[in-house]
Design a protein around this nucleic acid. Structure first.
Lengths: 202, 202
DNA sequence: CGACTTCTGCAGCGATCGCTGCAGAAGTCG
DNA sequence: CGACTTCTGCAGCGATCGCTGCAGAAGTCG
């Protein structure tokens, strides 16, 4: 005989953790890890600091959760781009995705993975390193995709996949900085188009 | 009859303001405006907080002084690059200067003008805007230089100088982010070379 | 119902933030 | 010398930082 056993024990949460995480993401995105105070975060999340700490652990763990969300949400264009059939298609999709994500009207401008913790105080070093690793992971995925394109004959055999991946990611970071500075979407997309003319580049 | 009148009145400073400014620059460069606490700054400068405030006013004014120093020092390659005889020479010198300055061994990696205040808390907005204006000024100088190159016939008449200037500055910002992430000088210089192949680009 | 578990609101922790008042040191000037 | 000016060291300001203890609220379970 099974007893009814739906909800978890204890007092249920008075807020939607997913929605709260989304709002925290927007705050970290705009102000960066250290520029976003716990007061600013919890205020935007609509919960007390106690609830935030009970649900997410601490500020750094909250940021890690936010980064996961960002990776699968706003930054989800990257894995999709890698599935494009040609290397040029991959590069085009990456830059177009970067432009769109870094200049979305109702969102903070720029890229969380770049501006989230580019410089930090001593106490923020781990988060800075986390984003360094995040960017490095993105670079590696692109490089491996271009390596495959070389192997498949899609790119000329003398192509250096690492160099080409550096080119695309460097340009994406530059676009992110421009977007954070207020440069408009149309101009950046025009720029992205121009950056990929003369393909294969080198 | 003139009386001897060399030194200024009052107790003389017990430190070299120029040397102190240089050390403050390195701290802001590495940690950013908000990541560099007054304690961290004055400790590096080798003076008390009182002396720092007496000499420079406050933290924001200190940063402005530091930015001036950075502009004339580490970032001095930009005005020199603009004096190159050809547009390609200008672009080449800008990217080479960026690579060198953002990867200097005994200096913080990256660019103060980019990572100094890309994201800030509410109280840092003015400094963020200052760096946005700083980057925008750099862009404008490059655009005007390329416009001149078009007028002189050095660049094809259909060239968009603004777009080309965006290309170069965007790439420079991207290099700055890569350098801040630990990517090495040689790889970035190779990348800069590759970015300017196929000149005129578009 | 009572036992148990988890979440919430309040109130406040110690540490650090940028910054300053004040007395005295250290110089120039007449 | 004494009057004056500026800089320095000490000590500490109010505000904010990230974070937590604790009592009670609000649910499940038998």
């Amino acid at each position: 005989m099974e007893t009814k056993q739906n909800g978890p024990v204890g007092r249920p949460r008075g807020f939607d953790a997913d929605e709260a995480l989304e709002r925290a993401m927007l705050v970290f995105w705009e102000h960066g890890y250290e520029g976003a105070s716990t007061a600013c975060l919890t205020n935007a999340m609509g919960i007390s600091t106690t609830s935030m700490y009970a649900a997410f652990g601490n500020k750094e763990k909250l940021f890690r959760k936010v980064l996961e969300r960002y990776t699968e949400g706003p930054s989800g264009y990257l894995p999709r781009a890698l599935e494009e059939p040609t290397a040029l298609g991959v590069a085009t999709a990456i830059l177009a995705g970067t432009v769109r994500t870094t200049t979305r009207p109702a969102h903070p401008h720029g890229c969380l993975g770049v501006q989230g913790a580019l410089t930090v105080s001593d106490s923020g070093r781990e988060v800075r390193d986390l984003l360094v690793a995040w960017r490095d992971n993105g670079y590696s995925c692109v490089r491996e995709r271009f390596q495959r394109a070389v192997d498949d004959g899609d790119l000329p055999p003398q192509t250096d996949p690492g160099l080409l991946a550096r080119y695309v990611t460097t340009f994406a970071y530059g676009i992110a900085v421009q977007a954070a500075s207020g440069v408009g979407r149309d101009e950046l997309q025009e720029l992205a188009d121009a950056a990929l003319r003369n393909w294969p580049l080198f």
